[in-house]
Write a protein that binds this DNA or RNA. Sequence first.
DNA 1: TCCAAAATGATAGTTCAGCTTACATATTTA
DNA 2: TAAATATGTAAGCTGAACTATCATTTTGGA
Lengths: 305, 305
Amino acid sequence: MDWHDIPSLAALRAFEAAARHESLSAAARELNVTHAAVAQHVRALEQDFAEDLLIRQGRGVAATAAGRALAEQLGDGFQTIAEAVADLRDRNADRPVNITVTPGFAGSWLMPRIGEFWSKHPEIQVNINPSCSVVDLRQEGFDLGVRYGAGSWPKLDAELLTEAAYWAVAHPDLVAGRAVRSLHDLTDLPWVMDSYEREQHRVVEGEGIDLAVLDVTLLNTNELALSAALAGLGVTVQPRSIVERDIRSGQLVKLMALRDNGLGYHMVTVPGRSSPNLRIFMAWLRRTAREDRENEKAPGGAGAS
Amino acid sequence: MDWHDIPSLAALRAFEAAARHESLSAAARELNVTHAAVAQHVRALEQDFAEDLLIRQGRGVAATAAGRALAEQLGDGFQTIAEAVADLRDRNADRPVNITVTPGFAGSWLMPRIGEFWSKHPEIQVNINPSCSVVDLRQEGFDLGVRYGAGSWPKLDAELLTEAAYWAVAHPDLVAGRAVRSLHDLTDLPWVMDSYEREQHRVVEGEGIDLAVLDVTLLNTNELALSAALAGLGVTVQPRSIVERDIRSGQLVKLMALRDNGLGYHMVTVPGRSSPNLRIFMAWLRRTAREDRENEKAPGGAGAS
DNA sequence: TCCAAAATGATAGTTCAGCTTACATATTTA
DNA sequence: TAAATATGTAAGCTGAACTATCATTTTGGA
């Protein structure tokens, strides 16, 4: 398309609306401008084409034969454009919120709580995609990621959701009678870990433990690792928010908190990408995390109902 | 159409071109802007839709699924608009030059000379419409009018073509031996006039002659009036440019020049309405009129060949 | 493997297309 | 006949659209 030869789209749009309405004033209302703006566009087009397109007719205007032909085709073109925009907006209005989370977070934090969200917002679908690796939100079309880390990912916005240092935990029976001052006091016990949770490996190494000397059973998902720990099959390290409920219920005991290096779960989003449904979901996440912290501070640490 | 919800047409056009070319730079070239302009438009649209439409792909860009769907529909819309404009321009490019002239000017000045234009410009069709009344150029779709008058018509441009006071003329035999100092010296002779040429009537009355006392034969066209004068059937008053050739050839004699009140034939156009063909024709009219004046001043007044 | 070319990304600054404001004129209706 | 409602026109304003410039990324060829 040689755009050099095509007049201003604003002018063509103004003319089409005026021809369709047979009124400069009505066209102005449709376009949210003054009648003077429409009149100027029309006259500029007539100058460009060296031909009348609209003529005055009483209190309104009428298109000439050439003007009618032009306006009809332009109307088709602008209608197609308007529909294209509407189609995209419609697709976005109802589409589910796509989120990606680490499996550990999904299984141990999110899924036990998501029922509350679903009952509060049955109209909002949330697609939860557990993923072991860091997902490119922009490229893969995700609205939100929940990631564990320091909160600094390039080109993304991040907001801390749960402060969550790692805790070492085990079944009470497994560690009965032991005094635990450091992870070194636990190296003779069996361990269970998720094969893929790099952070688990990293935080253990951060305590000066050589993973090679541990009797570690690697499991394919963090759920399995957690289940094994709950069954007394080994020591595990987990983000605090994952195991808080099991500790409160007495199914696990906290052996020690690992070094806190500013890590936590973050809500990660693409700048500028938002939707009403996403905002509602994020607000619920925020509120739920805050309630968890408040329950933790309450006397006796009553479990969330 | 609710234009509030529709982003900038310039942005939609920039995005469509970038998606089609899979390149911001190529889109920029098509749109005659810089790549930065295209990039800004695309990012603004992505912000508005809260969704990626184009992603970087090596040295180029690729549309996302949503972007492809949008771009395809937009392409259809812009193509329709481009075709509408092209259709109107095509209709204008070849169309004839429509002109309206007084019958007197047509028959006595233009037609004897138009052959030269036709041989010089066989590709340009000129539609000559003789009309007794003043025609609304804009409303009736004329490119040019040749009108006799002072050169001031509302909302129209006018350019003097031939200075043409009226002359009183007659066949030499009709007035042999007469000394003519004023039209009063001719009131006893027969007269011939065009029924419709209001100016002929007006200029005679301007010399103080009461038309009612003249023996006037009114004819249906100025050609007939001129033919009658050439046949010796009466005195006639004609614009000078109409009768100059017959006077030079000796078929008529100039009796006197009537009062010159700044009248002449003018080329009258609608401001802003032009085309290459019209400009060529008007230039030929100008040149032809100038050559006539130059021939008039040459020794012996040699006729135009 | 390195460098140059060609692309995209980002931002500060410029400019004029597009608009508003204001008033004049034309048409229609009560 | 006057008021209401339209179009016509031109001066002036402003922010959308752009350019200029530099940074970064990617790729192809030497």
